[in-house]
Nucleic acid binder design. Sequence first.
DNA 1: GCCGTTTTCGGCCCGACTGTTTTCAGTCG
Length: 594
Amino acid sequence: MTKEEAIGKLEEIATLLDLRGENPFKSRAYRTAARALDSLSEDFESFVRAGKLDQVKGIGEGIRVKLEELVLTGRSAYLEGLKGSFPAGVVALLDIPGLGPKKAKILWEKLGIRDLAELEAACQSHRVGKLPGFGPKTEENILAGIEQRRSYAAYHRYGDLIGLAEQLVERLRAHPDVVRVSLGGSFRRGKEIVRDLDLVCSSSKPLSVMEAFISSAGVQRVVNHGQTKATVLLEGGLACDLRVVPDWDYPCALLHFTGSKEHNIALRQRAIAQGKKLSEWGLFREPRVRSSDGSKDSAAEEEASGEPIRCRDEAEIYEELGLAYIPPELRENLGEIEAAESNRIPRLVEWTDLRGTFHCHTTASDGHSTLEAMAEAAQALGLEYLGIADHSKSSFQANGLDEERVGRQQAEIRKLNGTFQGFRLFSGTECDILRDGRLDFSDPLLASFDYVVASVHAGFSSSEEEMTRRILRAMESPYVTMLGHPTGRLLLMRKPYPVDLEKIIDCAAETGTWIELNAQPMRLDLDWRWWHAARDKGVRCVINPDAHHARELAFLRIGVNIARKGWLRREDVVNTLSLNLVERALRTKRGGGG
DNA sequence: GCCGTTTTCGGCCCGACTGTTTTCAGTCG
Protein backbone atom coordinates (compact mmCIF):
# COMPACT_ATOMS: atom_id res chain seq x y z
CA MET A 1 0.00 0.00 0.00
CA THR A 2 1.36 3.38 -0.97
CA LYS A 3 1.28 6.38 1.29
CA GLU A 4 -1.23 8.10 -0.98
CA GLU A 5 -3.58 5.13 -0.75
CA ALA A 6 -3.29 5.05 3.03
CA ILE A 7 -4.04 8.77 3.20
CA GLY A 8 -7.11 8.16 1.07
CA LYS A 9 -8.32 5.44 3.43
CA LEU A 10 -7.89 7.66 6.48
CA GLU A 11 -9.84 10.42 4.80
CA GLU A 12 -12.55 7.98 3.85
CA ILE A 13 -12.84 6.90 7.48
CA ALA A 14 -13.10 10.54 8.54
CA THR A 15 -15.92 11.22 6.08
CA LEU A 16 -17.85 8.14 7.16
CA LEU A 17 -17.45 9.08 10.82
CA ASP A 18 -18.88 12.51 10.03
CA LEU A 19 -21.82 10.88 8.30
CA ARG A 20 -22.43 8.68 11.31
CA GLY A 21 -22.56 11.82 13.43
CA GLU A 22 -19.69 10.74 15.66
CA ASN A 23 -17.67 13.16 17.75
CA PRO A 24 -16.33 15.66 15.20
CA PHE A 25 -12.96 15.65 16.89
CA LYS A 26 -12.66 11.98 16.17
CA SER A 27 -12.96 12.49 12.41
CA ARG A 28 -10.65 15.45 12.69
CA ALA A 29 -8.08 13.18 14.30
CA TYR A 30 -8.17 10.94 11.21
CA ARG A 31 -7.73 13.94 8.94
CA THR A 32 -4.86 15.22 11.07
CA ALA A 33 -3.25 11.79 10.86
CA ALA A 34 -3.67 11.81 7.06
CA ARG A 35 -1.91 15.18 6.87
CA ALA A 36 0.84 13.94 9.14
CA LEU A 37 1.46 11.01 6.78
CA ASP A 38 1.52 13.39 3.84
CA SER A 39 4.46 15.28 5.32
CA LEU A 40 6.41 12.08 5.89
CA SER A 41 9.48 11.95 3.69
CA GLU A 42 10.66 8.39 4.40
CA ASP A 43 9.56 5.39 2.35
CA PHE A 44 6.11 4.79 3.75
CA GLU A 45 5.85 1.02 3.71
CA SER A 46 9.20 0.32 5.28
CA PHE A 47 8.53 3.05 7.80
CA VAL A 48 5.33 1.32 8.90
CA ARG A 49 6.89 -2.14 8.84
CA ALA A 50 9.71 -0.90 11.02
CA GLY A 51 7.10 0.09 13.59
CA LYS A 52 8.03 3.75 13.46
CA LEU A 53 4.50 5.10 13.17
CA ASP A 54 4.34 5.94 16.86
CA GLN A 55 7.01 8.59 16.29
CA VAL A 56 4.60 10.61 14.17
CA LYS A 57 2.80 13.41 15.95
CA GLY A 58 -0.90 13.10 15.22
CA ILE A 59 -0.88 9.30 15.03
CA GLY A 60 -1.73 7.62 18.30
CA GLU A 61 -2.45 4.08 19.35
CA GLY A 62 -5.82 3.71 17.59
CA ILE A 63 -4.88 5.00 14.16
CA ARG A 64 -1.45 3.34 14.28
CA VAL A 65 -3.04 -0.10 14.63
CA LYS A 66 -5.42 0.55 11.74
CA LEU A 67 -2.61 1.80 9.52
CA GLU A 68 -0.47 -1.23 10.27
CA GLU A 69 -3.38 -3.48 9.37
CA LEU A 70 -3.83 -1.57 6.12
CA VAL A 71 -0.19 -1.88 5.18
CA LEU A 72 0.20 -5.52 6.18
CA THR A 73 -3.09 -6.87 4.82
CA GLY A 74 -4.20 -4.20 2.35
CA ARG A 75 -7.53 -3.82 4.13
CA SER A 76 -9.09 -2.40 7.28
CA ALA A 77 -11.90 -4.18 9.06
CA TYR A 78 -12.82 -0.90 10.73
CA LEU A 79 -13.20 0.92 7.42
CA GLU A 80 -15.17 -1.91 5.89
CA GLY A 81 -17.51 -1.93 8.87
CA LEU A 82 -18.10 1.79 8.45
CA LYS A 83 -18.70 1.44 4.74
CA GLY A 84 -21.21 -1.31 5.40
CA SER A 85 -23.39 1.01 7.44
CA PHE A 86 -24.27 3.23 4.47
CA PRO A 87 -25.22 2.76 0.84
CA ALA A 88 -22.22 3.87 -1.21
CA GLY A 89 -24.15 6.68 -2.87
CA VAL A 90 -24.80 8.56 0.37
CA VAL A 91 -21.19 9.77 0.43
CA ALA A 92 -21.76 11.42 -2.96
CA LEU A 93 -24.42 13.64 -1.37
CA LEU A 94 -21.59 15.52 0.32
CA ASP A 95 -20.40 16.75 -3.07
CA ILE A 96 -23.40 19.04 -3.29
CA PRO A 97 -22.53 22.50 -1.99
CA GLY A 98 -24.52 23.24 1.15
CA LEU A 99 -24.87 19.58 2.07
CA GLY A 100 -22.65 18.49 4.89
CA PRO A 101 -22.61 15.32 6.94
CA LYS A 102 -25.47 16.35 9.22
CA LYS A 103 -27.89 17.14 6.44
CA ALA A 104 -26.86 14.12 4.39
CA LYS A 105 -27.51 11.94 7.42
CA ILE A 106 -31.00 13.40 7.86
CA LEU A 107 -31.78 12.83 4.18
CA TRP A 108 -30.71 9.21 4.43
CA GLU A 109 -32.42 8.50 7.73
CA LYS A 110 -35.71 10.35 7.26
CA LEU A 111 -36.30 9.92 3.55
CA GLY A 112 -34.15 6.87 2.83
CA ILE A 113 -32.23 8.76 0.14
CA ARG A 114 -29.35 6.61 -1.10
CA ASP A 115 -27.86 8.61 -3.98
CA LEU A 116 -28.06 11.78 -6.03
CA ALA A 117 -30.81 10.51 -8.31
CA GLU A 118 -33.07 9.84 -5.34
CA LEU A 119 -32.16 13.19 -3.86
CA GLU A 120 -33.13 14.97 -7.05
CA ALA A 121 -36.50 13.18 -7.15
CA ALA A 122 -37.14 14.01 -3.50
CA CYS A 123 -36.44 17.70 -4.10
CA GLN A 124 -38.66 17.78 -7.17
CA SER A 125 -41.54 16.31 -5.21
CA HIS A 126 -40.82 18.81 -2.38
CA ARG A 127 -40.32 16.14 0.23
CA VAL A 128 -36.96 17.60 1.22
CA GLY A 129 -38.28 21.06 2.03
CA LYS A 130 -40.57 19.63 4.67
CA LEU A 131 -37.76 18.14 6.73
CA PRO A 132 -36.74 20.03 9.87
CA GLY A 133 -33.87 22.40 9.08
CA PHE A 134 -34.64 22.27 5.36
CA GLY A 135 -36.81 24.64 3.38
CA PRO A 136 -37.74 25.67 -0.16
CA LYS A 137 -34.47 27.56 -0.64
CA THR A 138 -32.42 24.51 0.34
CA GLU A 139 -34.39 22.42 -2.13
CA GLU A 140 -33.64 24.92 -4.86
CA ASN A 141 -29.95 25.03 -3.99
CA ILE A 142 -29.67 21.25 -3.95
CA LEU A 143 -31.28 21.00 -7.38
CA ALA A 144 -28.95 23.68 -8.72
CA GLY A 145 -25.99 21.82 -7.20
CA ILE A 146 -27.01 18.53 -8.82
CA GLU A 147 -27.44 20.30 -12.15
CA GLN A 148 -24.02 21.92 -11.87
CA ARG A 149 -22.43 18.60 -11.02
CA ARG A 150 -24.04 17.02 -14.03
CA SER A 151 -22.81 19.72 -16.37
CA TYR A 152 -19.28 19.40 -14.97
CA ALA A 153 -19.22 15.61 -15.09
CA ALA A 154 -18.34 15.55 -18.76
CA TYR A 155 -15.26 17.71 -18.25
CA HIS A 156 -11.83 17.20 -16.79
CA ARG A 157 -9.18 19.57 -15.53
CA TYR A 158 -6.03 19.77 -17.62
CA GLY A 159 -3.85 19.40 -14.56
CA ASP A 160 -5.60 16.20 -13.53
CA LEU A 161 -4.89 14.55 -16.88
CA ILE A 162 -1.24 15.35 -17.48
CA GLY A 163 0.14 12.16 -15.94
CA LEU A 164 -2.36 9.94 -17.73
CA ALA A 165 -1.94 11.73 -21.05
CA GLU A 166 1.85 11.44 -20.99
CA GLN A 167 1.58 7.79 -20.04
CA LEU A 168 -0.67 7.08 -23.04
CA VAL A 169 1.75 8.77 -25.40
CA GLU A 170 4.75 6.95 -23.96
CA ARG A 171 3.00 3.60 -24.24
CA LEU A 172 2.27 4.18 -27.92
CA ARG A 173 5.71 5.57 -28.57
CA ALA A 174 7.20 2.37 -27.22
CA HIS A 175 5.17 0.28 -29.67
CA PRO A 176 7.45 -1.07 -32.43
CA ASP A 177 4.97 -0.28 -35.22
CA VAL A 178 4.45 3.35 -34.22
CA VAL A 179 6.46 5.92 -36.16
CA ARG A 180 5.20 9.22 -34.71
CA VAL A 181 2.68 9.93 -31.98
CA SER A 182 1.33 13.03 -30.30
CA LEU A 183 -1.53 14.23 -28.20
CA GLY A 184 -3.93 16.44 -30.07
CA GLY A 185 -7.15 18.23 -29.27
CA SER A 186 -7.78 20.81 -26.63
CA PHE A 187 -5.30 19.08 -24.34
CA ARG A 188 -2.48 19.83 -26.77
CA ARG A 189 -3.73 23.39 -27.01
CA GLY A 190 -3.39 23.63 -23.25
CA LYS A 191 -7.02 24.34 -22.49
CA GLU A 192 -7.68 24.39 -18.73
CA ILE A 193 -10.71 22.11 -19.16
CA VAL A 194 -10.94 19.27 -21.63
CA ARG A 195 -13.71 16.88 -22.54
CA ASP A 196 -11.61 14.02 -23.89
CA LEU A 197 -8.11 13.10 -24.99
CA ASP A 198 -7.13 12.84 -28.64
CA LEU A 199 -4.15 10.87 -29.81
CA VAL A 200 -2.75 10.91 -33.32
CA CYS A 201 -0.15 8.45 -34.47
CA SER A 202 1.42 7.22 -37.66
CA SER A 203 2.11 3.64 -38.57
CA SER A 204 2.19 1.32 -41.55
CA LYS A 205 0.53 -1.37 -39.43
CA PRO A 206 -2.50 0.40 -37.97
CA LEU A 207 -4.23 -2.81 -36.89
CA SER A 208 -1.44 -3.87 -34.62
CA VAL A 209 -1.31 -0.39 -33.03
CA MET A 210 -5.07 -0.37 -32.63
CA GLU A 211 -5.05 -3.75 -30.92
CA ALA A 212 -2.38 -2.64 -28.49
CA PHE A 213 -4.26 0.55 -27.72
CA ILE A 214 -7.66 -0.95 -26.97
CA SER A 215 -6.19 -3.72 -24.85
CA SER A 216 -3.87 -1.54 -22.80
CA ALA A 217 -4.25 -1.23 -19.05
CA GLY A 218 -6.63 1.45 -17.88
CA VAL A 219 -9.07 0.99 -20.75
CA GLN A 220 -12.43 0.24 -19.21
CA ARG A 221 -14.60 0.02 -22.27
CA VAL A 222 -14.05 0.10 -26.02
CA VAL A 223 -16.74 2.34 -27.44
CA ASN A 224 -15.81 1.58 -31.04
CA HIS A 225 -12.77 0.69 -33.07
CA GLY A 226 -11.94 0.10 -36.68
CA GLN A 227 -8.72 0.04 -38.66
CA THR A 228 -7.74 3.64 -38.16
CA LYS A 229 -9.90 5.03 -35.42
CA ALA A 230 -10.82 3.95 -31.92
CA THR A 231 -12.66 5.45 -29.01
CA VAL A 232 -12.23 4.03 -25.53
CA LEU A 233 -13.37 5.01 -22.08
CA LEU A 234 -10.61 5.18 -19.52
CA GLU A 235 -10.99 4.93 -15.78
CA GLY A 236 -13.09 7.77 -14.45
CA GLY A 237 -15.15 7.86 -17.64
CA LEU A 238 -12.64 9.87 -19.64
CA ALA A 239 -13.05 9.28 -23.37
CA CYS A 240 -9.92 8.89 -25.45
CA ASP A 241 -9.77 8.83 -29.25
CA LEU A 242 -6.92 7.41 -31.26
CA ARG A 243 -6.34 8.07 -34.94
CA VAL A 244 -3.77 6.02 -36.83
CA VAL A 245 -2.66 7.31 -40.24
CA PRO A 246 0.14 6.58 -42.71
CA ASP A 247 3.19 8.64 -41.87
CA TRP A 248 2.86 11.01 -44.85
CA ASP A 249 -0.63 11.96 -43.64
CA TYR A 250 0.53 12.53 -40.08
CA PRO A 251 1.24 16.31 -40.15
CA CYS A 252 -2.15 17.18 -41.58
CA ALA A 253 -3.94 14.73 -39.32
CA LEU A 254 -2.19 16.16 -36.27
CA LEU A 255 -2.97 19.71 -37.35
CA HIS A 256 -6.58 18.79 -37.94
CA PHE A 257 -7.08 16.95 -34.66
CA THR A 258 -5.33 19.63 -32.66
CA GLY A 259 -7.76 22.29 -33.81
CA SER A 260 -9.29 24.44 -32.72
CA LYS A 261 -12.14 24.17 -35.12
CA GLU A 262 -12.05 27.95 -35.55
CA HIS A 263 -8.33 27.86 -36.28
CA ASN A 264 -8.80 25.07 -38.83
CA ILE A 265 -11.58 26.93 -40.59
CA ALA A 266 -9.42 30.02 -40.92
CA LEU A 267 -6.53 27.93 -42.25
CA ARG A 268 -8.77 26.24 -44.82
CA GLN A 269 -10.13 29.53 -46.05
CA ARG A 270 -6.60 30.75 -46.44
CA ALA A 271 -5.69 27.62 -48.41
CA ILE A 272 -8.67 28.08 -50.72
CA ALA A 273 -7.69 31.69 -51.35
CA GLN A 274 -4.29 30.38 -52.47
CA GLY A 275 -5.80 27.77 -54.79
CA LYS A 276 -5.07 24.97 -52.33
CA LYS A 277 -7.11 22.72 -50.18
CA LEU A 278 -6.40 21.67 -46.62
CA SER A 279 -8.14 18.85 -44.80
CA GLU A 280 -7.33 16.13 -42.32
CA TRP A 281 -6.22 14.06 -45.33
CA GLY A 282 -3.61 16.48 -46.57
CA LEU A 283 -2.76 19.69 -48.32
CA PHE A 284 -3.53 19.73 -52.06
CA ARG A 285 -3.02 21.97 -55.04
CA GLU A 286 -5.79 22.81 -57.53
CA PRO A 287 -8.64 20.93 -55.95
CA ARG A 288 -11.52 19.92 -58.15
CA VAL A 289 -14.80 21.69 -57.43
CA ARG A 290 -16.71 19.84 -54.74
CA SER A 291 -19.71 17.82 -55.87
CA SER A 292 -23.00 19.65 -55.50
CA ASP A 293 -24.42 17.38 -52.82
CA GLY A 294 -21.47 18.23 -50.58
CA SER A 295 -20.87 14.57 -49.72
CA LYS A 296 -17.88 13.88 -47.54
CA ASP A 297 -17.03 10.31 -48.33
CA SER A 298 -13.34 10.20 -47.49
CA ALA A 299 -12.14 8.10 -50.42
CA ALA A 300 -14.08 10.17 -52.90
CA GLU A 301 -12.78 13.32 -51.31
CA GLU A 302 -9.18 12.21 -51.61
CA GLU A 303 -9.67 11.32 -55.23
CA ALA A 304 -11.17 14.70 -55.95
CA SER A 305 -8.48 16.50 -54.04
CA GLY A 306 -5.85 17.15 -56.62
CA GLU A 307 -2.08 17.00 -56.36
CA PRO A 308 -0.87 16.50 -52.80
CA ILE A 309 1.73 18.85 -51.33
CA ARG A 310 3.98 16.77 -49.14
CA CYS A 311 4.77 18.35 -45.77
CA ARG A 312 7.11 16.69 -43.30
CA ASP A 313 5.63 18.36 -40.25
CA GLU A 314 3.17 21.01 -39.13
CA ALA A 315 5.70 23.79 -39.60
CA GLU A 316 5.93 22.98 -43.31
CA ILE A 317 2.15 23.16 -43.66
CA TYR A 318 2.15 26.63 -42.15
CA GLU A 319 5.08 27.59 -44.34
CA GLU A 320 3.28 26.34 -47.41
CA LEU A 321 0.37 28.63 -46.44
CA GLY A 322 2.72 31.59 -46.03
CA LEU A 323 2.59 31.52 -42.25
CA ALA A 324 5.11 31.30 -39.46
CA TYR A 325 4.74 28.26 -37.24
CA ILE A 326 1.93 28.69 -34.73
CA PRO A 327 2.39 26.89 -31.41
CA PRO A 328 -0.63 24.73 -30.48
CA GLU A 329 -1.48 26.91 -27.47
CA LEU A 330 -2.27 29.85 -29.74
CA ARG A 331 -4.50 28.00 -32.19
CA GLU A 332 -7.80 29.54 -31.14
CA ASN A 333 -8.28 31.95 -34.05
CA LEU A 334 -7.73 34.86 -31.72
CA GLY A 335 -5.32 36.77 -33.92
CA GLU A 336 -2.61 34.13 -34.27
CA ILE A 337 -3.07 33.72 -38.03
CA GLU A 338 -2.72 37.45 -38.66
CA ALA A 339 0.34 37.47 -36.42
CA ALA A 340 1.88 34.49 -38.23
CA GLU A 341 1.25 36.19 -41.56
CA SER A 342 3.40 39.15 -40.60
CA ASN A 343 5.87 37.07 -38.61
CA ARG A 344 4.74 38.48 -35.27
CA ILE A 345 4.24 35.21 -33.39
CA PRO A 346 5.97 35.92 -30.09
CA ARG A 347 8.60 33.69 -28.59
CA LEU A 348 6.43 32.33 -25.81
CA VAL A 349 7.71 31.90 -22.28
CA GLU A 350 9.12 28.47 -21.52
CA TRP A 351 9.32 26.47 -18.36
CA THR A 352 13.11 26.70 -18.39
CA ASP A 353 12.89 30.52 -18.39
CA LEU A 354 11.64 30.55 -14.81
CA ARG A 355 14.27 31.48 -12.24
CA GLY A 356 12.13 31.44 -9.12
CA THR A 357 8.63 31.84 -7.83
CA PHE A 358 6.51 33.35 -5.05
CA HIS A 359 3.40 32.32 -3.15
CA CYS A 360 4.23 29.02 -1.51
CA HIS A 361 2.95 27.76 1.83
CA THR A 362 4.69 25.82 4.57
CA THR A 363 3.69 23.90 7.67
CA ALA A 364 3.57 27.28 9.44
CA SER A 365 0.09 27.79 7.94
CA ASP A 366 -1.71 25.16 5.89
CA GLY A 367 1.18 23.72 3.88
CA HIS A 368 2.41 20.16 4.32
CA SER A 369 6.13 20.72 3.83
CA THR A 370 8.57 22.56 6.04
CA LEU A 371 10.44 25.69 5.07
CA GLU A 372 13.60 23.64 4.60
CA ALA A 373 11.86 21.05 2.43
CA MET A 374 10.39 23.78 0.22
CA ALA A 375 13.77 25.46 -0.20
CA GLU A 376 15.38 22.13 -1.02
CA ALA A 377 12.75 21.28 -3.63
CA ALA A 378 13.10 24.70 -5.26
CA GLN A 379 16.86 24.25 -5.54
CA ALA A 380 16.39 20.77 -6.95
CA LEU A 381 14.29 22.36 -9.71
CA GLY A 382 17.15 24.71 -10.44
CA LEU A 383 15.40 27.82 -9.13
CA GLU A 384 17.43 30.72 -7.74
CA TYR A 385 14.83 32.00 -5.35
CA LEU A 386 11.63 30.98 -3.63
CA GLY A 387 9.08 33.21 -1.96
CA ILE A 388 7.25 31.94 1.10
CA ALA A 389 3.80 33.43 1.53
CA ASP A 390 1.90 31.75 4.33
CA HIS A 391 -1.59 32.89 5.23
CA SER A 392 -2.29 35.93 7.39
CA LYS A 393 -4.13 35.83 10.67
CA SER A 394 -7.70 36.24 9.37
CA SER A 395 -7.47 32.93 7.53
CA PHE A 396 -8.19 30.96 10.68
CA GLN A 397 -9.16 27.89 8.72
CA ALA A 398 -5.72 27.87 7.15
CA ASN A 399 -3.89 28.44 10.42
CA GLY A 400 -2.88 31.95 9.35
CA LEU A 401 0.12 33.54 11.04
CA ASP A 402 -0.24 36.36 13.57
CA GLU A 403 2.35 39.09 14.09
CA GLU A 404 4.41 37.06 16.51
CA ARG A 405 4.60 33.96 14.33
CA VAL A 406 5.48 36.14 11.35
CA GLY A 407 8.47 37.44 13.30
CA ARG A 408 9.62 33.93 14.08
CA GLN A 409 9.28 32.80 10.47
CA GLN A 410 11.21 35.80 9.21
CA ALA A 411 14.01 35.02 11.64
CA GLU A 412 14.03 31.42 10.45
CA ILE A 413 14.23 32.55 6.82
CA ARG A 414 17.13 34.91 7.61
CA LYS A 415 18.96 32.08 9.29
CA LEU A 416 18.40 29.68 6.40
CA ASN A 417 19.49 32.32 3.89
CA GLY A 418 22.83 32.37 5.66
CA THR A 419 23.34 28.74 4.65
CA PHE A 420 22.59 29.02 0.91
CA GLN A 421 24.87 29.79 -1.97
CA GLY A 422 23.31 31.23 -5.12
CA PHE A 423 19.83 30.74 -3.71
CA ARG A 424 17.57 32.91 -1.62
CA LEU A 425 14.33 32.55 0.25
CA PHE A 426 12.12 35.62 0.20
CA SER A 427 9.90 36.35 3.15
CA GLY A 428 6.38 37.15 2.03
CA THR A 429 2.80 36.79 3.13
CA GLU A 430 -0.45 35.89 1.47
CA CYS A 431 -2.30 38.66 3.17
CA ASP A 432 -6.09 38.56 3.28
CA ILE A 433 -7.96 41.40 1.64
CA LEU A 434 -10.59 42.14 4.27
CA ARG A 435 -14.22 42.91 3.50
CA ASP A 436 -13.65 46.64 3.26
CA GLY A 437 -10.47 46.34 1.21
CA ARG A 438 -8.13 46.90 4.14
CA LEU A 439 -5.31 44.44 4.56
CA ASP A 440 -5.04 41.94 7.37
CA PHE A 441 -1.70 43.32 8.59
CA SER A 442 -0.59 46.84 9.53
CA ASP A 443 1.64 48.81 7.15
CA PRO A 444 4.75 48.51 9.34
CA LEU A 445 4.36 44.74 9.45
CA LEU A 446 3.71 44.58 5.68
CA ALA A 447 6.88 46.63 5.20
CA SER A 448 8.87 43.97 7.03
CA PHE A 449 8.19 41.43 4.27
CA ASP A 450 10.15 41.25 1.04
CA TYR A 451 6.82 41.20 -0.78
CA VAL A 452 3.09 40.82 -0.25
CA VAL A 453 0.55 38.69 -2.13
CA ALA A 454 -2.91 40.11 -1.48
CA SER A 455 -5.79 37.67 -1.89
CA VAL A 456 -9.51 37.41 -1.23
CA HIS A 457 -10.45 34.36 0.84
CA ALA A 458 -13.82 35.30 2.31
CA GLY A 459 -16.94 37.27 1.54
CA PHE A 460 -17.37 35.84 -1.97
CA SER A 461 -20.99 36.90 -2.06
CA SER A 462 -20.22 40.61 -2.34
CA SER A 463 -21.61 42.38 -5.38
CA GLU A 464 -19.32 43.03 -8.34
CA GLU A 465 -19.03 46.70 -7.37
CA GLU A 466 -18.11 45.91 -3.78
CA MET A 467 -15.66 43.19 -4.72
CA THR A 468 -13.99 45.38 -7.33
CA ARG A 469 -13.73 48.32 -4.93
CA ARG A 470 -12.34 46.04 -2.28
CA ILE A 471 -9.59 44.65 -4.51
CA LEU A 472 -8.74 48.02 -6.04
CA ARG A 473 -8.27 49.48 -2.58
CA ALA A 474 -5.86 46.70 -1.68
CA MET A 475 -3.90 47.18 -4.88
CA GLU A 476 -3.46 50.87 -4.10
CA SER A 477 -1.29 49.90 -1.13
CA PRO A 478 2.40 50.40 -1.90
CA TYR A 479 3.11 47.18 0.01
CA VAL A 480 0.94 44.95 -2.15
CA THR A 481 3.40 43.51 -4.64
CA MET A 482 0.97 41.22 -6.41
CA LEU A 483 -2.68 40.25 -6.52
CA GLY A 484 -3.24 36.54 -5.79
CA HIS A 485 -5.77 34.35 -7.69
CA PRO A 486 -7.76 37.36 -8.96
CA THR A 487 -11.14 35.67 -9.42
CA GLY A 488 -11.09 32.92 -6.78
CA ARG A 489 -12.45 30.35 -9.21
CA LEU A 490 -12.07 26.62 -8.63
CA LEU A 491 -12.34 24.89 -11.96
CA LEU A 492 -15.36 22.60 -12.24
CA MET A 493 -16.24 23.42 -8.64
CA ARG A 494 -16.77 27.07 -7.96
CA LYS A 495 -17.48 29.96 -10.26
CA PRO A 496 -15.29 33.05 -10.05
CA TYR A 497 -16.55 35.72 -7.72
CA PRO A 498 -17.98 38.71 -9.57
CA VAL A 499 -15.30 41.30 -10.24
CA ASP A 500 -14.63 43.89 -12.92
CA LEU A 501 -11.39 42.51 -14.33
CA GLU A 502 -10.89 45.38 -16.73
CA LYS A 503 -10.71 47.79 -13.81
CA ILE A 504 -8.41 45.42 -11.94
CA ILE A 505 -6.10 45.16 -14.94
CA ASP A 506 -6.06 48.93 -15.46
CA CYS A 507 -5.29 49.45 -11.79
CA ALA A 508 -2.49 46.88 -11.94
CA ALA A 509 -0.96 48.76 -14.85
CA GLU A 510 -1.26 52.13 -13.09
CA THR A 511 0.03 51.05 -9.70
CA GLY A 512 2.65 48.60 -10.93
CA THR A 513 0.99 45.74 -9.09
CA TRP A 514 1.78 42.35 -10.57
CA ILE A 515 -1.04 39.95 -11.28
CA GLU A 516 -0.62 36.36 -10.34
CA LEU A 517 -1.13 33.49 -12.70
CA ASN A 518 -1.95 30.98 -10.01
CA ALA A 519 -0.75 27.64 -11.38
CA GLN A 520 -2.68 25.48 -8.95
CA PRO A 521 -4.47 23.11 -11.40
CA MET A 522 -7.83 23.88 -9.80
CA ARG A 523 -7.35 27.61 -10.23
CA LEU A 524 -5.28 28.65 -13.27
CA ASP A 525 -6.34 32.14 -12.32
CA LEU A 526 -6.08 34.75 -13.91
CA ASP A 527 -7.64 32.99 -16.88
CA TRP A 528 -5.53 32.87 -20.06
CA ARG A 529 -8.15 34.81 -22.00
CA TRP A 530 -7.23 38.02 -20.17
CA TRP A 531 -3.49 37.92 -20.38
CA HIS A 532 -2.92 39.12 -23.93
CA ALA A 533 -4.79 42.35 -23.27
CA ALA A 534 -3.27 42.77 -19.80
CA ARG A 535 0.20 42.38 -21.25
CA ASP A 536 -0.52 45.02 -23.87
CA LYS A 537 -1.45 47.39 -21.07
CA GLY A 538 1.89 46.78 -19.42
CA VAL A 539 0.74 44.47 -16.63
CA ARG A 540 3.37 42.04 -15.45
CA CYS A 541 2.54 38.44 -14.76
CA VAL A 542 3.96 36.35 -11.95
CA ILE A 543 3.54 32.59 -12.24
CA ASN A 544 3.04 31.08 -8.79
CA PRO A 545 2.37 27.47 -7.85
CA ASP A 546 0.42 28.24 -4.64
CA ALA A 547 2.23 25.11 -3.46
CA HIS A 548 1.06 23.46 -0.25
CA HIS A 549 3.60 20.68 -0.62
CA ALA A 550 7.15 20.58 -1.96
CA ARG A 551 6.08 18.42 -4.90
CA GLU A 552 3.51 21.06 -5.89
CA LEU A 553 6.25 23.36 -7.14
CA ALA A 554 5.76 21.26 -10.27
CA PHE A 555 2.51 23.16 -10.84
CA LEU A 556 4.74 25.86 -12.31
CA ARG A 557 4.87 23.90 -15.56
CA ILE A 558 1.10 24.02 -15.85
CA GLY A 559 1.23 27.73 -15.13
CA VAL A 560 3.72 28.23 -17.94
CA ASN A 561 1.38 26.40 -20.34
CA ILE A 562 -1.41 28.79 -19.44
CA ALA A 563 0.91 31.79 -19.75
CA ARG A 564 1.84 30.60 -23.25
CA LYS A 565 -1.83 30.29 -24.06
CA GLY A 566 -2.16 33.91 -22.94
CA TRP A 567 0.55 34.96 -25.44
CA LEU A 568 3.03 35.80 -22.69
CA ARG A 569 6.71 36.13 -23.47
CA ARG A 570 9.61 35.75 -21.09
CA GLU A 571 9.79 39.49 -20.56
CA ASP A 572 6.14 39.60 -19.48
CA VAL A 573 6.71 37.20 -16.60
CA VAL A 574 8.48 38.69 -13.59
CA ASN A 575 9.79 35.45 -12.21
CA THR A 576 11.94 34.88 -15.25
CA LEU A 577 14.18 37.60 -13.81
CA SER A 578 17.44 36.57 -12.23
CA LEU A 579 17.82 36.87 -8.47
CA ASN A 580 19.58 40.24 -8.71
CA LEU A 581 17.01 41.77 -10.99
CA VAL A 582 14.04 40.39 -9.12
CA GLU A 583 15.32 41.83 -5.86
CA ARG A 584 15.20 45.25 -7.47
CA ALA A 585 11.82 44.61 -9.04
CA LEU A 586 10.38 43.70 -5.65
CA ARG A 587 11.33 47.12 -4.31
CA THR A 588 9.98 49.11 -7.25
CA LYS A 589 6.40 49.67 -6.10
CA ARG A 590 7.53 50.64 -2.63
CA GLY A 591 9.64 53.35 -4.17
CA GLY A 592 12.87 51.60 -3.26
CA GLY A 593 14.54 51.91 -6.65
CA GLY A 594 14.66 49.47 -9.49
C1' DG B 1 -8.99 9.74 18.43
C1' DC B 2 -4.85 12.57 19.89
C1' DC B 3 -2.39 15.32 23.02
C1' DG B 4 -0.62 17.05 27.14
C1' DT B 5 -0.64 17.08 31.48
C1' DT B 6 -3.69 19.54 36.52
C1' DT B 7 -1.15 11.58 34.79
C1' DT B 8 -6.93 10.64 33.72
C1' DC B 9 -9.64 13.71 31.34
C1' DG B 10 -10.70 18.18 29.05
C1' DG B 11 -9.79 20.60 24.96
C1' DC B 12 -9.35 20.13 20.29
C1' DC B 13 -9.34 26.74 15.03
C1' DC B 14 -12.69 30.55 14.44
C1' DG B 15 -15.85 33.75 12.29
C1' DA B 16 -19.20 34.74 8.61
C1' DC B 17 -22.94 33.47 6.01
C1' DT B 18 -27.23 31.11 4.71
C1' DG B 19 -31.50 29.56 5.47
C1' DT B 20 -33.85 28.24 8.77
C1' DT B 21 -36.06 29.75 12.54
C1' DT B 22 -37.93 33.25 15.82
C1' DT B 23 -32.64 32.32 18.33
C1' DC B 24 -29.70 29.09 15.88
C1' DA B 25 -27.64 24.92 13.36
C1' DG B 26 -25.04 23.64 9.60
C1' DT B 27 -21.73 24.65 6.20
C1' DC B 28 -17.80 26.82 4.43
C1' DG B 29 -13.35 28.81 4.02
